[in-house]
Design a binder for these strands. Structure first.
Ligand SMILES: Nc1ccn([C@H]2C[C@H](O)[C@@H](COP(=O)(O)OP(=O)(O)OP(=O)(O)O)O2)c(=O)n1
Ligand SMILES: [Mg+2]
Length: 398
DNA sequence: GCGGATCAC
DNA sequence: TATGGTGATCCGC
């Protein structure tokens, strides 16, 4: 790991800035840092658990486990991504390998065929089986766990799910969601059939490649970086609350009866969340009030946020992803300030608060992806430090 | 380059 | 009654 070339550094703060002064953000930006504009050669799709054919991937002693090693799309790739160092070609290769046999690109075709089919014929995507109430299988993002919505909730998850179902069912949106569920079910069935059909030999080969990939990844974790992800708390709402701090005390959503961009913490206790239609939120929380969104203002505050971080980024590692998030490697700043990265992180958060008046949470970790995961763990107005060792990383991933 | 689709915030 | 705006990627054509 030490022998490898360090990743490209020292990118300017705003290369080819767009109107926000923000570098365009690819799906996993860090996988292509320093490679903008270069078209990477695409590999042809590899079926899950295919033999490594004659490619170099199968060569003995090859540290790089090959493009299909982590492409199963079975959930294993999340673990791999969390374990890996994330700024090299291999990470990029693995990402592209996921565009193979079971990749989302297939979903376009599945969506069309699922749409043609009769509603409710596939298990899990129609009226629920047996005596279960119909709302029980209408799973939406609104019943997923979300950091900071654990205790002191007014409504149970089940209540939220039922209200969302009752307010949605029969609508065009609802039917479209059902159609997408059917497509996902079809995709899962295909994958399961493929695994069932695999020979024991193929399964063993796949396990060996997975083990090799894990071993290789384990060597890539580095402790010479201290990636922080700063994420503003209740961002859109917080911008409005600057002018009217009393808003913090009552349930408020940003948006309107049609759609909510975000909600304050008082409203989240009722299950009111980003991307929830306002009329459903009103059902969950009748006293909810709305404020109209103001993108120009969010944009202005976002710039202040980014500028507040510049003194903590002498090497130009910062990357502003969206309006309320920014990745920075704090290693250089913490060395210069003769502090631990955690202390520097806290100082940076204080600087953001001073510049914007809004609290911010942060995660600090050996890779950006881990920093992002960690940033939710002590929200709001907190930070979580994830040390650079396997035990801590695995415990956090779990 | 465009339209369809997906994803993140 | 009623399901967004903004910015990005990827695919097939
Ligand atoms: N579906 C979504 C999700 C988010 N946003 C906007 C509003 C949020 O304020 C902002 C930041 O998104 P976050 O996920 O960080 O949510 P918040 O900052 O509002 O809350 P948190 O304190 O959980 O970070 O992006 C949006 O318009 N639509
Ligand atoms: Mg936020």
């Amino acid at each position: 790991a030490r022998a490898r070339q360090p990743p490209p550094r020292g990118l300017p703060w705003r290369p080819g800035a767009n109107e926000r002064g923000v570098r365009p953000r690819p799906r996993r930006p860090w996988a292509r840092v320093g490679q903008r504009g270069k078209q990477r050669q695409r590999r042809s799709p590899q079926p899950f658990m295919s033999a490594p054919s004659t490619s170099a991937a199968g060569a003995a002693g090859e540290a790089h486990a090959g493009p299909d090693a982590a492409s199963a799309g079975d959930g294993g790739e999340l673990v791999l991504e969390l374990l890996e160092e994330d700024e090299d070609d291999e990470a990029c290769d693995r990402e592209e390998a996921q565009d193979g046999w079971f990749a989302a690109s297939q979903q376009q075709h599945e969506l069309q065929s699922a749409g043609a089919g009769e509603a409710g014929t596939e298990a899990g995507a129609g009226p629920s089986a047996a005596d279960e109430p119909a709302w029980k299988d209408y799973a939406t993002v609104f019943t997923n766990d979300k950091a900071g919505m654990g205790d002191n909730m007014v409504h149970s998850k089940e209540h939220v799910q039922r209200v969302v179902y009752e307010m949605s069912q029969g609508s065009p949106h609802f039917e479209n969601e059902r159609r997408k569920e059917r497509a996902a079910d079809e995709r899962a069935s295909r994958m399961e059939a493929h695994v069932r059909a695999a020979t024991e030999q193929a399964l063993q080969a796949a396990r060996r490649r997975a083990d090799a990939a894990l071993t290789a990844l384990e060597l890539t974790r580095r402790s010479d970086r201290a990636w922080a992800l700063f994420d503003m708390d209740q961002f859109f709402f917080a911008v409005h609350a600057q002018k009217d701090p009393k808003l913090h005390e009552v349930p408020v959503a940003v948006g309107g009866i049609g759609m909510i961009s975000t909600a304050n913490y008082a409203a989240r206790r009722y299950g009111v969340r980003s991307a929830m239609p306002g009329f459903i939120a009103k059902k969950l929380c009748p006293q909810l009030t709305f404020v109209r969104s103001d993108f120009a203002e969010y944009s202005r505050v976002s710039k202040l946020f980014g500028e507040a971080l510049r003194p903590f980024d002498p090497e130009g590692t910062a990357y502003q992803a969206g309006l309320d998030e920014c990745y920075v490697d704090l290693k250089a700043a913490s060395a210069a300030r003769d502090e631990t990265p955690a202390e520097t992180c806290a100082a940076a958060r204080a600087a953001i608060k001073a510049a914007t008046g809004i609290t911010v949470s942060a995660g600090l970790a050996p890779s950006r992806q881990l920093a992002k995961v960690a940033s939710d763990l002590n929200k709001p107005d907190g930070q979580y430090v994830l040390p650079s060792n396997r035990g801590a990383v695995v415990a956090c991933a779990r």
